[in-house]
Simulated assay, not measured.
Amino acid sequence: MKGKTELIIKLLAVAWIFAATLITISSIKENLPSEFWRDSWDFIKLIVGPAIGAGIAFYVNDYVHKQRKKDQERTAIYGASYAIGSMLEDFLNVRVVFRDMLADAAEGFASDGITDAPLVAYVKPQIATFLPKNGINLLSIHFLLHAPEGKEAFQKLQHLERIYQHLIDVHGLYNEAVLERQTKLATASDEERKNKNEVEIIGLKTYHSVMDFLIAVVEHIQNDEREYIEASNLLASAADAYLHEMTPLKHRGYKNTRHLEENLRPLPPPIASALKYGA
């Protein structure tokens, strides 16, 4: 709307200048010989008139081109903002799923009177949905690199992409390790279960992989939320500066607050300890 208003004002200004030129020429005409004026008017019609028309057409075409380019850039920025929001939803879903899994396990141990359950006892497969093709099309917003705010936002978005991809990777590796553990335990013979401990049955590598990937996922869900919010806000600031307008892209909180720390079930002590001191 603002762009259209500016175009109308500028066209009116050009029209006013054109009209003023005609009035001035008419005024001069009154004081010049008719033959001179006729020749001059022919010259004006032949040269000046088309030049003015071409100038107006060029200006309008250039303005339309710039507006179209700006609209495309705005669309790319809004698309990147939407991608961040979609990635954040994936992250929040994983957070709730894993926190519930860990809390369910802790409550189960408590009801059975188990006070020293090992870390590995908390693991089980967890399905979390990561939308296909989620991610930020950084190439589509490369134009932001021309401004300091854009460079900062671009670097943050690159960092966020790596964090998000690492979450996907460790989540997948966690499930693979858990499945391998379950398979080895399920296929162990009665004699093996009687004479061997879990590490001997599933192997040291699988045993530690399960715990390491569990803690890796939990580290993400405990620490990464601010990365998504900061990326959203930096992109919004870069968009405001580049587009010269106030965009509604800054993070404005959540409608569903279930995933907030104060609303989540507590981390079991062994998990909290592993985060603090290492598994």
Rank of each mutant, 00 (worst) to 15 (best):
T5P: 02
I8E: 15
L12S: 15
W16N: 12
W16V: 14
T21L: 13
I23Y: 09
I25V: 14
L32M: 15
L32H: 10
L32V: 15
S34P: 04
R38L: 12
D39F: 13
D42V: 12
A51V: 13
A54W: 11
G55M: 07
G55A: 12
N61I: 11
V64C: 01
K66D: 13
R68D: 08
R68C: 00
Q72C: 11
E73T: 07
A76S: 15
A76G: 13
I77C: 02
I77G: 01
Y78Q: 03
A83C: 01
A83G: 04
S86F: 00
L88H: 07
D90Y: 03
D90W: 05
D90N: 15
F91D: 01
N93S: 13
R95F: 00
V96R: 00
V96S: 01
R99T: 03
D100K: 08
L102S: 06
A103C: 10
A103H: 13
A106C: 10
G108K: 06
F109S: 03
D112W: 14
G113A: 03
P118F: 09
V120N: 02
A121W: 06
P125R: 11
P125Y: 05
I127M: 10
A128G: 09
F130N: 03
L131V: 15
P132G: 09
L138P: 00
H142L: 12
L144A: 06
L145S: 05
E149F: 09
E149R: 07
K151Q: 15
A153Y: 05
F154T: 09
K156T: 14
Q158G: 09
E161T: 14
R162L: 12
I163T: 05
H166R: 11
L173F: 02
Y174Q: 03
V178F: 06
E180A: 10
D190W: 06
E192V: 08
R193Q: 08
K196F: 11
V199T: 05
I202K: 06
L204R: 12
K205Y: 08
Y207W: 11
Y207R: 04
H208T: 13
H208M: 13
V210I: 09
V210D: 04
F213N: 09
A216Q: 07
A216C: 00
V217N: 05
V218T: 04
E219V: 08
E219N: 15
Q222C: 01
N233D: 15
A236D: 08
S237F: 01
E245I: 05
P248D: 10
L249F: 02
K250M: 04
K255D: 10
H259I: 01
H259W: 03
L260D: 04
N263Y: 00
Y277I: 11
G278R: 03
A279P: 05
